[in-house]
Amino acid sequence: MTYKLILNGKTLKGETTTEAVDAATAEKVFKQYANDNGVDGEWTYDDATKTFTVTE
């Protein structure tokens, strides 16, 4: 399945996607991606759209 991440960081905004077997796996990938890019904030997940959002 394809999962999407929306980044609403103070210095980085954008979107990315990943292929993962489940939401938990996608979340690990996205949290590492956000961490690597210096984005740390509040996370939400919408199962209907398979979209994670992180907002600083």
Rank of each mutant, 00 (worst) to 15 (best):
K13H: 13
T17G: 04
K13N: 08
E19F: 13
E42F: 10
D22L: 04
L7D: 01
T18N: 04
Y3G: 00
T49W: 04
K10M: 13
D40C: 05
T51W: 02
T16E: 10
A20R: 03
D47N: 07
Y3N: 01
K50A: 08
T17Q: 12
I6G: 01
G38P: 02
A48G: 12
Y3E: 00
D22I: 03
N8L: 12
L12C: 06
M1R: 08
Q32M: 07
E19K: 10
T18M: 07
D47T: 10
V39P: 02
M1V: 12
T44F: 11
D47F: 13
T16F: 13
T55N: 12
Y45Q: 01
T25A: 15
F30Q: 00
A48S: 15
F52T: 00
T2W: 11
T44V: 10
G38V: 04
T44E: 15
T44H: 12
K31D: 02
T25D: 15
V54M: 07
V39T: 03
N35I: 15
K10A: 11
W43A: 01
K50S: 11
K31T: 07
N8F: 06
M1L: 12
G41Q: 02
D36P: 01
T44W: 07
T53A: 06
G9W: 06
K13W: 13
A26S: 03
E42C: 06
D36I: 09
K50T: 04
E56W: 09
E15K: 05
K28C: 05
A23R: 13
K4I: 15
V29Y: 15
F52V: 01
Q32H: 07
D40M: 12
D46S: 07
T16Y: 14
Y45V: 02
E42N: 12
V21K: 14
N8G: 05
F52Q: 00
K31Y: 12
T51Q: 04
Y45L: 02
V39S: 03
N35Q: 11
A24R: 11
A26K: 01
K13V: 09
I6D: 03
D46C: 05
D46L: 04
G41N: 01
A48I: 08
A26H: 00
G14D: 13
G38Q: 09
G14T: 14
G14F: 15
N37W: 13
T18H: 07
V21P: 12
K28D: 09
K13C: 06
E56R: 03
A23P: 14
K28A: 14
F30T: 00
T51I: 08
Y33R: 03
G41R: 01
T49M: 07
V54Y: 03
T16D: 04
T55L: 10
A34Q: 02
A34S: 06
K28N: 07
D36E: 12
F52I: 01
N37A: 15
M1I: 08
T11A: 08
A26E: 00
Y33S: 02
K4D: 02
E19L: 12
D36Q: 15
T17S: 10
N35S: 13
I6K: 13
D46T: 07
F30E: 00
N37F: 15
K10S: 12
K50D: 02
E42H: 10
T51A: 04
A23F: 12
E27A: 11
V39N: 03
N37D: 03
V54T: 03
I6N: 05
W43F: 04
A48N: 15
V29F: 15
T53W: 07
V54D: 01
K13A: 07
K50L: 15
E15A: 07
L7K: 02
K13R: 14
T49F: 06
A23Q: 09
Q32C: 05
K10R: 10
N37V: 10
G14I: 11
D46M: 05
T16W: 15
A26F: 00
F52N: 00
G41K: 01
N8W: 09
V54S: 02
F52P: 00
F52Y: 08
K4L: 10
E56H: 05
V29G: 04
W43Q: 01
